[in-house]
Design a protein around this nucleic acid. Sequence first.
DNA 1: TCTTGATCCTCTAGTCGCTAGAGCATGTAG
DNA 2: CTACATGCTCTAGCGACTAGAGGATCAAGA
Lengths: 140, 140
Amino acid sequence: MNAISIGVVSRETGVKVPTIRYYESVGLLPSPERTDSNRRSYDDATVRRLRFIRHARELGFEVDAIRQLLDLSDQPERSCAEVDVIARSHLAEIDEKIARLTALRFEVQRMVDEGEHGRVAQCRVIEVLGDHAACLHERH
Amino acid sequence: MNAISIGVVSRETGVKVPTIRYYESVGLLPSPERTDSNRRSYDDATVRRLRFIRHARELGFEVDAIRQLLDLSDQPERSCAEVDVIARSHLAEIDEKIARLTALRFEVQRMVDEGEHGRVAQCRVIEVLGDHAACLHERH
DNA sequence: TCTTGATCCTCTAGTCGCTAGAGCATGTAG
DNA sequence: CTACATGCTCTAGCGACTAGAGGATCAAGA
């Protein structure tokens, strides 16, 4: 029922076929059902899970962090304290990423704007990420 | 003048010593001056550059993208058109990252909030990143 | 001054997260 | 029933580090 081949999953998620098999091998994806001829057979839930993994990776989360977030999703009935600790720590990580990206965005935007009327006066891309990051890092 | 050893640079940036040498080998950092005894001798500019590289990597930018941003910074006098194309493409990438992180942040925050009064009802972490990502991907 | 421990050097090899390819089996369309 | 796409497993390669061996150099104390 609703059996999706690995190739279709790949096309729908943008995750390459060998990568899907790799995620299975490291436990990010459950081992799927197999057809009579031993082919992997997925469902919609796996497609969503895979999309999540892909974009979380693109956002710079490590496989371990993704595993934790997925575990949270797999067992929403687990203890509040546990969820809270894990979720809060990721919240902090997410906030830091957003803050840094926003600073970088501002600076790159400034370069685009300046480029519109003449030449770029100076580039402070390094400063904006470097210093901001340093300050965030200090209070770690 | 203002000579900083690789170890100090490492401590100040949080980038490991071998990684600093690696960045030099792949051209992200210029080959620094050497002391009489062949030791690398850095200045403050390199420390800032390194901090930028580190945090850009943590934000999920590839080494090639970082190289482009650094080039922009190294030669701010280059043609407007060139800067514009590069900067705009990174702007789009940055905006996409911010949008996804914001969606994820919202959902993780909801989990923390719900956890405060009882158990977590359900986890939509996968949905929020997965679907949002899919929609962003469609219009590529 | 001598020594001892930290820091540096280069070079090689290992890890993580994929990614590509060989060699073979199975599915599907004409 | 061919032919070609798609699937399987397994091994090897790549990007971006990371750790370790083996050896030189520096800095501080006896």
